[in-house]
Write a protein that binds this DNA or RNA. Structure first.
Lengths: 346, 346
DNA sequence: TTGTATGCGTTATCAT
DNA sequence: ATGATAACGCATACAA
């Protein structure tokens, strides 16, 4: 254990030890090729011997670049946002960028936290828009580049998201074509644009067939909300024969509660989820869901933001929306799966 | 959308607009009480009008403090590390500290990433020790304060962890006392100290009763490892009557595979997990597990690290190990649960 | 209470 | 190829 409170090694000490100026030390670090091999070696040796690492803030101040991306997430429960974060960090690291994370959950003043974040990073990636003030993204984007992942489109904001309407339409259509006639969508279209798009697909599938869609059963992404919906369903006289849930958590809770109450899933009631979390394959019945290219979304966002920061993307090319495809994964819970022999792993 | 490439507002512009020196502006921000109410208002107005935010790197450089904690996690699959991260960020935010995250997974040179991280933060919290070079923590701690969460104890390193041996001993004892006589532990005691401690509890429970514990069935925390162990069990002639798994994922995979093969859980085979992930309550049988105080672990680590950074904790008081209790959660899968009427939610 | 001036550890622009 | 030296934007010790 090295002694604490030891002043950190600076570029001056390295320079002195190597018998050169600090400019040369800096060059060895940034553009080694413009330094003569001889002195380069000498400097490098001094660096190694002193275990010198340039100070982050000094670098940032002088170079006017933080080499850091900010990441704002609504929360970190469930695998979805965790995977977004992991994918982003991985992609950012590949670009030699650090990642500073802010979670909006249980933060009384997220706007303040976001503004604070903006002073430490070169750009910000905002995951979703749930729980964030409407103007937050816009106000941040006045300061530094902002890319939104799976959130609302806004002028001047780059958006990267997965397909929502198409898979929802396909899934709903599948249930309708199997003869189901009273489907309900479970989720809160007002809470997030993703959910709104999924509901739009649910509606579209009905309209495609000249049917009238029922209104959504509003539920946030929590166990409690799922329990409440289950209770509603069990009380109602005209129970639906299919549920298109806005995420897997809701689907799982619903399956649990309804099965416990004697409802046969999927025979009496077909249920589908969204996100294809790991547990989806371990429930009975196995859960039909939609798999999003989460890591790719994150990586794409990181790449675009970095390009914007470095100036590789001009004003004119900024503010686009990128949509990546998502895949429907058919399993038992929707009642239309073919008999399968494959294993449980993907 | 504000014009891009606009130079950011600096303290000088605020000072000029308010008709004061930059020192006064700085004081209004840091110690408002030492400046007269009159000028304070004037400065504050200028700050608001210009939407001034002090530059992060300049602040850090001058104040010699980053106001940022570094967080190193092995990965982010599964809820455990995600909750640690969430808990840490929350606690750090309460202390007005930012959080910079590095994931060790799929990083070819984690040591380099960690050193890089150290130049941007005031201290580092390392979650676990899996996948990290042995000397990494020690070498980092020579540079800045390091706290380890659920990792190995080392001289000069502060450790915060949950109880492992006690719950494992309790759980194993419970199975033995129920008459089970051929138990196996599933997990890799070599991979992480947590797991080693859990296996120690498994062993202790046997010794307590004059029994000889079987060796652990080595498995990492992956689905594939679980599948492999399941295959081993199905092939073996003398199948155990109980499995104490090092985490819930392994338990879930094992239940799935063994049930599919016709084994009755828990009658033929009792199974327990660890971490009490959400899905544990939605499987059949419901999974007996151990609940760790994850958020508290993280918050405690953040508090300690911050105290160390601010100097509130002296050299002499640094390097301790803090152990928080973990709770055994009895459900159906261990075969010793009482009939229950409670709901599914905690 | 306020202003002046120095320093924080780099990068980068000049000279040489 | 290398060295001086001026920013970078802020905090703070010291003066006033």
């Amino acid at each position: 254990m090295a002694p604490r409170d030891t002043a950190a090694v600076t570029i001056y000490q390295v320079a002195q030890r190597a018998g050169v100026s600090i400019a040369t030390v800096s060059r060895v670090l940034k553009k080694p090729d413009v330094v003569s091999p001889d002195t380069r070696d000498r400097v490098q040796r001094a660096i190694d011997e002193l275990d010198y690492l340039p100070d982050g803030s000094a670098r940032s101040l002088a170079a006017r670049r933080q080499e850091t991306h900010g990441l704002i997430l609504p929360e970190l429960t469930g695998a979805y946002f965790a995977e977004l974060l992991a994918g982003y960090e991985s992609a950012a690291a590949a670009l030699d960028q650090s990642v500073m994370v802010v979670l909006a959950a249980d933060k009384d003043d997220i706007a303040r936290a976001a503004r604070r974040l903006a002073t430490h990073v070169d750009g910000i990636a905002v995951m979703g828009s749930a729980g964030l003030p409407d103007d937050l993204v816009l106000s941040l984007s006045g300061r530094i580049p902002v890319v939104v992942v799976a959130g609302a489109e806004q002028p001047g904001i780059e958006v990267v998201r997965a397909e929502n309407t198409v898979p929802a339409r396909e899934l709903t259509g599948r249930l309708l074509d199997a003869g189901r006639r009273s489907l309900r969508f479970v989720g809160d279209p007002e809470a997030a644009v993703d959910v709104a798009h999924r509901y739009a697909g649910f509606v579209a599938a009905h309209r495609d067939r000249g049917l009238e869609p029922a209104p959504a059963m509003v539920a946030k992404f929590t166990e409690e909300a799922g329990v409440k919906v289950a209770a509603q369903l069990l009380e109602s006289s005209d129970r639906p024969d299919g549920l298109v849930c806005a995420n897997d958590l809701l689907a799982i809770v619903l399956i649990d509660r309804l099965q416990t109450a004697g409802v046969n899933v999927p025979t009496d009631l077909a249920i589908t989820g969204w996100d294809d979390i790991l547990a989806a394959r371990y429930l009975r019945p196995r859960l039909t869901s939609v798999r999003q290219p989460v890591r790719q979304l994150a990586a794409y966002a990181a790449d675009r933001l970095h390009s914007r920061i470095t100036g590789d993307v001009s004003d004119a090319d900024w503010g686009r929306t990128h949509v990546l495809p998502a895949d429907v994964v058919i399993r038992d819970s929707c009642g239309t799966a073919l008999p399968h022999k494959e294993g449980n792993l993907r």
